[in-house]
């Protein structure tokens, strides 16, 4: 059975993921950033918990009169 520790992303994996995503940020800096902004990043979970299945994304790149 897989343990929780085995499921945790290891520092070398973070570096690999960052490279794949084109982030161009060193692993140590990425660690520091995610620690500093963990509040915001974790708060995204609040949005994920909302039931918005009946909502279309806002048509935000259309002209302003779409607000009417």
């Amino acid at each position: 059975m897989t343990t929780e520790a085995e499921l945790k992303i290891k520092p070398q994996d973070i570096a690999k993921l960052a490279e794949m995503a084109g982030l161009r940020v060193e692993a140590a800096r990425l660690d520091a950033l995610t620690a500093r902004y963990s509040g915001f990043l974790n708060e995204l979970e609040k949005l994920r918990e909302l039931d918005i299945n009946d909502q279309e994304p806002a048509f935000v790149f259309r002209a302003g009169e779409s607000l009417l």
Partner: peptide, 17 residues
Amino acid sequence: EVSRLILASDYLRAQRV
């Protein structure tokens, strides 16, 4: 830099909210 860690699905979720 930290903004680049946000998933596309979270961005669209925010647009739906």
